[in-house]
Design a protein around this nucleic acid. Structure first.
Length: 577
RNA sequence: CGGGGCGUAGCGCAGUUUGGUAGCGCGCACGGUUCGGGUCCGUGAGGUCGGCAGUUCGAAUCUGCCCGCCCCGACCA
């Protein structure tokens, strides 16, 4: 492809609304353009990268025995009504009405529709197992789209659904997908971890996220540096803390006046005490019930864990009014001593010998508060793990905390959908049973942005070879006949070998061409100009090499083979183990 | 949905406080110049100042309503 015939509108300046690296670079390098909030068009380069992601995903899904289908994006409301998700999804569902006033929506995910396919077409254990997948545009009315392609309202997703005769076989299907997913992420060269995650409202028996490790990620994950333990911070746990060092049987809490000191920071400064001896006490609403959750002053309450400990779907931090009603004090002076409602105490806070807490009286705190002596509560794990915490899985490991972007998620669903929708089969003894399901998602368009988040430098994108829109970029410098001839020769020879080439044949100054080549990020750059030819050929430089002097000089006649070898080597480096 | 900010040429911005009929840089077109890391000079095209209504002799500027976008938070099978 010649740049003079292509559409690669690069920008010197980033549009003001771009914040994330991938958003900025994909806009500047001419891959995408914004159409609305969370809605993007793909320019020719963007489509080529998207197709590369799709190709890798399809190849690995096919290899794993999954069958590609295509379900509609426009859906009648009936299916989601069957499972209750017409209401559960709330405002995230993009709803519409047809001319007759019937309810429709655009599909945010397709468990119902695929389960409908299963109940129509699968009747016998002989039809199982099956794994059906699709690559399709999904729609979610995100309350806050952000980060360009990272969180969109319209996006491309690969979703797969497995159907098995029982839990045990379903786990085999799940395991196959796990392997396929590792191959997919390996082939894109991404650094990622598979982490255990909150299965949320899906109610499944297991789930794992594939988190790409980048500093700009929205998610936090904790991973052991010693073993393979890794979990989303929402569910990450640490080893049991040692029991309390001293048990001071005597003494009693001592009330101290702490005027206007409603934060741990202020009280600790006021009393000259370290925050880690504080009993941080927060009031939550779990449905109708008011509860107090107590953790160490340095710890953060993990609301997912708290909700689980309480057996509710979610907890909400109480309003100042609720806090006043529950404790009789302003926010900042709540404490477990004398609290009459339900009390949950983190096991690390329980281990504190003597702590400082609010006195449930505005402007007062208690010193010398001892868990177990001065208050009783349910002992639970409700704190978020921190970097340096001991690994729950191995003796020597310490947990590190990373940021990640969720690029894939696999679930064991069980019979949640099949039972609600009557997707059953007859087993080998003639008994009717619900099919056991799993579902497996990959954010295809999100991966385009995620790859840029991981592979970029100050000058632009550095695509992994498997995703690059073209395999080779030829920068033509000057328009002397011998230059034009050499460019055409190399271009034709590479294309004859099946290598995709983008030739910058514009009448631009060299600096402009080099800048754009770096921005666009094609992994191999071939520079051909009068000077290179005088020196004996063409210059070959990987995008990862930032020093132009380190380019390799190759004779024109040898260039196609040498370049083809380099392309092959780059591809090989991304082969999964 | 709560809090904050923004909307002026394709992009980045100034002008709004104090009302007088719109400007800069990049990009684009043309001419010249330059030519291995975003040359330099000149000429030119390009704007319903987000929309509607109002105040006024006169509105990008003041008032009201609406729309859109971004950020923080809540939310995110």
């Amino acid at each position: 492809m010649r740049l003079t015939h292509a559409l690669v509108p690069t920008l010197k300046e980033a549009p003001a609304d771009a914040t994330s690296v991938s958003h900025t670079l994909l806009l500047r390098a001419g891959y995408i353009r914004r159409v609305g909030a969370g809605i993007y068009s793909y320019l020719p380069l963007g489509v080529r990268v998207l197709r590369n992601v799709e190709r890798i995903v399809r190849e690995e899904m096919d290899k794993a025995g999954a069958l590609e289908v295509l379900l509609p994006a426009l859906l009648p409301a009936d299916y989601f009504r069957e499972t209750g998700r017409w209401h559960l999804f709330g405002d995230n569902l993009l709803r519409l009405k047809d001319r007759k006033g019937s309810d429709y929506h655009l599909g945010p995910t397709h468990e119902e529709i695929i389960t409908d396919m299963a109940r129509r077409e699968v009747h016998s254990y002989r039809d199982l197992p099956k794994n059906l997948y699709q690559v399709q545009t999904k729609f979610r009315d995100e309350p806050r789209p952000r980060g360009g392609l990272l969180r969109c309202r319209e996006f491309t997703m690969k979703d797969a659904y497995s159907f098995d005769v029982d839990e045990e076989r379903a786990k085999l299907s799940y395991e196959k997908m796990r392997v396929a997913y590792t191959r997919i992420f390996d082939r894109m060269g991404l650094s990622y971890r598979m982490v255990s995650a909150d299965s949320g409202a899906m109610g499944g028996s297991g789930s794992a996220e594939f988190q790409v490790l980048v500093q700009s990620g929205e998610d936090f994950i904790a991973a052991c540096g010693h073993c393979d333990y890794a979990a989303n911070l929402e569910v990450a746990v640490t080893a049991e803390p040692p029991p309390a060092a001293t048990q001071n049987k005597d003494g009693a809490p001592e009330k101290v006046h702490t005027p206007k000191a409603g934060t741990i920071e202020k009280v600790s400064a006021f009393l000259g005490a370290s925050p880690d001896v504080f009993l941080k006490s927060l009031i939550y609403l779990a449905g109708e019930e008011v509860v107090m959750a107590v953790v160490c002053g340095n710890d953060e309450i993990n609301e997912v864990k708290l909700a689980k400990a309480l057996g509710v779907g979610e907890v909400v931090l109480a309003s100042p009014d609720d806090v006043w009603r529950a404790t009789g004090a302003k926010v900042g002076f709540a404490g477990p001593v004398g609290f009459k409602g339900k009390l949950l105490v983190d096991r690390a806070a329980k281990a504190l010998p003597l702590g400082i807490s609010g006195a449930n009286e505005t402007d007062y705190h208690f010193k010398n508060v001892q868990p177990g002596r001065d208050f009783e509560g349910e002992i639970v794990d409700i704190r978020s793990v921190r970097a340096g915490d001991p690994c729950p899985n191995c003796a020597d490991g310490k947990l590190e905390v990373y940021r990640g972007i969720e690029a894939g998620h696999i679930f064991l669903l069980g019979t949640h959908y099949s039972e609600k929708m009557g997707a059953t089969f007859l087993d080998d003894s003639g008994e009717t049973k619900p099919v056991v399901m799993g579902c497996y998602g990959i954010g295809v368009s999100r991966l385009v942005a995620t790859a840029v988040e991981q592979f970029n430098d100050a000058n632009g994108i550095l695509w992994p070879a498997s995703l690059a829109p073209y395999q080779v970029a030829i920068v033509q410098l000057g328009s002397e006949p011998e230059v034009i001839t050499a460019v055409a020769e190399v271009e034709a020879a590479l294309e004859a070998r099946g290598i995709s080439v983008l030739v910058d044949d514009r009448e631009e100054r060299p600096g402009v061409k080099f800048k754009d080549a770096d921005l666009v990020g094609i992994p191999l750059r071939v520079t051909i100009g009068k000077k290179s030819l005088e020196r004996g050929g063409v210059e070959l430089k990987p995008r990862t090499e930032t020093d132009p002097k380190k380019a390799e000089l190759v004779a024109v006649e040898k260039a196609p083979q040498t370049i083809a070898d380099r392309v092959a080597a780059l591809a090989k480096s991304l082969e999964p183990k």
